[in-house]
Write a protein that binds this DNA or RNA. Structure first.
Lengths: 117, 117
DNA sequence: CAGATATTTTAGTTACATCTAAAATGTAGC
DNA sequence: GCTACATTTTAGATGTAACTAAAATATCTG
């Protein structure tokens, strides 16, 4: 376990992404679609950061890139993160932290897609 | 274990301070004296941040304030940090990270005190 | 090749963490 | 009260992490 690992999971956005690819691999686009307050570009940058930290690995397939967590790289932090995610208030706390650590130009919220589109 | 705990120990400066008060309590001044590249004020601010995160506790005695780690608050992260600190290269990595995350006005390095003064 | 889709990269924006220097606060002793 | 020492707090500086929008890259399909 490296100090850089701790830094990598200190970001609420990266925690959120890591959780999405913890149990199953997902494409970059699928990850982005699961998040409603951030652009595709930002997600891609965070995926790169996670990959550089060794916390996720990518597999290319056609135009897609499938990401999944490298659970072993988290060591004892894996269970810690899981317990956090199981917390009923986790999503609420996350939203607060995302607000807190937000940077850059003001967002224009991505409109929720209609069901089935 | 809270997400804010992870954020608190993600800072190399706070890690450094936490290590100093891990096995024995130390006064704010003693902590500052152990660090040669930062002002007393900055150390005091980080101690406050650590206290707000519940990672250290303080005891007043006369003019002094003695700080010590609240090991239990770190849960499984305690052993993780210890293992990091035991790494022979830890100090080197720390220096690199301190350089990386440095902010604010340029420092004027505190001159090393003569032996025995 | 042209067009569609998936993703990455670049250029520019913004808020805040981390710092310094100095002022303020608190405590002890004379 | 005054002085000395220990610490905290304030005001201001600075660098960068996290973002957006748009351009670039890559892959598939007809």
């Amino acid at each position: 376990m490296q100090s850089s690992t701790i830094a990598a999971i200190a970001s609420p956005r990266r925690q959120e992404i890591l959780r999405l690819v913890w149990d199953e691999e997902r494409s970059a686009g699928a990850i982005h679609r699961a998040l409603d307050d951030v652009t595709f570009g930002a997600v891609s940058l965070q995926l790169k950061a996670l990959q550089d930290a060794g916390l996720v690995e990518a597999r290319a397939e056609g135009r897609f890139r499938f990401y999944r967590a490298r659970r072993d790289a988290l060591g004892p932090m894996g269970p810690v993160l899981r317990r956090m995610w199981d917390d009923a208030l986790w999503r609420l706390k996350l939203a607060a932290e995302l607000e807190q650590t937000r940077r850059g130009p003001k967002r224009r919220r991505k409109p929720a897609r209609k069901r089935g589109s």
